[in-house]
């Protein structure tokens, strides 16, 4: 196991380097730059800005400087949010997104798994069909529609919940629901089909034959085997959800990280693009390693090489 983890770490570093390199050159190929405005600033001012942030140097030199600095943990200053470093922006904004996203992940697991099992168990009944309709809606309806509907109903009409910010638990209700809708539905469907698979297995018949109660058979024997696909899905899902959603954060005015990904690209904030990309890539890789380990723990038949 130790050897396996070490191997994964080395591989992860190579992957992150590759992601950083590709992003660096791709973003520099895109036309535009960070110091544009509708009103042209004077060539002297543009030149001064470029000199200040080292953008006047050849691309290869900038690349090596960046990689070296990044390796030392220095991700530079944001080119657009003047006076703030990339690290500072990520470390203040990520916790906000992670808090909302974390609750959404827990909620989608707590709802999705049991409902999926129930749907599988009640296969073909009204309950199954109802869940299926709900899950389809949750997957098909885009989050901005869910956000807008929630906002209109609970924020504007009923005035039960605040429409902006995260002040108090009430502020979390709508963003968490909007974020959890898709993963809940997805987990529910995944759980249902994987559960159906398992329920048809011989050992389930054996369990029934030897007189185990439904509860024990379902939750102890069937769930254990059926949960594997969910764990696979959880890795990237957690990484994506915890780093925030551009739409949900924009609509509910949440100062999270989600918007920074998009804004950095639209504004050609090169250092922010690099910082957020490397951050997401690293997070994603870590989650995948964690998933592999959890896999092994849940199903000892799997060997990690």
């Amino acid at each position: 196991m130790g050897k396996y983890i070490l191997k994964r770490i080395v591989l992860a570093l190579v992957t992150i380097w590759a992601v950083a390199t590709i992003t660096f050159f791709l973003m520099n190929l895109v036309p535009g730059g960070p110091f544009l405005s509708e009103k042209a600033i004077s060539p002297a001012a543009t030149a001064a800005l470029e000199a200040k942030y080292g953008l006047d140097k050849p691309m290869s030199e900038r690349y090596f400087t960046y990689i070296l600095d990044a390796a030392h943990g220095d991700f530079g200053d944001s080119l657009k949010q003047r006076g703030r470093t990339v690290m500072e922006i990520i470390t203040t904004k990520f916790p906000v997104s992670a808090r909302v996203g974390g609750i959404a992940v827990v909620l989608s697991l707590c709802l999705g798994v049991p409902l999926g099992i129930l749907a599988a168990y009640k296969r073909g009944t009204f309950v199954d069909s109802l869940f299926s309709v709900i899950a389809t809606c949750g997957i098909a309806v885009p989050s901005f529609v869910i956000c807008t509907l929630l906002m209109y109903a609970f924020g504007v009409r009923l005035k039960w919940l605040p429409t902006l910010g995260l002040e108090g638990w009430k502020g979390y209700v709508m963003p968490v629901c909007a974020l959890a809708a898709y993963p809940t539905s997805y987990i529910m469907r995944l759980m249902r089909s994987s559960m159906l698979d398992v329920l048809g297995q011989d050992y389930m018949r054996t369990a029934k034959a030897k007189g185990l109660s439904q509860k024990v058979a379902l939750f102890k024997h069937a769930m254990r085997n059926a949960i594997l696909p969910i764990i696979t899905y959880l890795g990237p899902m957690i990484a994506y959800t915890l780093t925030g959603s551009f739409i949900v954060e924009k609509i509910f005015t949440i100062p999270g990280l989600g918007g920074e990904f998009i804004k950095a690209i639209n504004g050609r904030d090169y250092t922010m693009i690099m910082g957020t990309t490397i951050f997401l890539a690293t997070f994603m890789i870590i989650m995948n390693v964690v998933v592999d380990i959890v896999y092994k723990l849940v199903d000892p038949r799997i060997t990690l090489k």
Binding site: F94, A98, R99, G101, G102, I103, V105, V106, L234, I238
Partner: peptide, 13 residues
């Protein structure tokens, strides 16, 4: 793992 992550997010903030 899930709970820990959520707590992690909460803790650092």
């Amino acid at each position: 793992m899930v709970a820990g992550l959520a707590a992690c997010g909460g803790g650092s903030s």
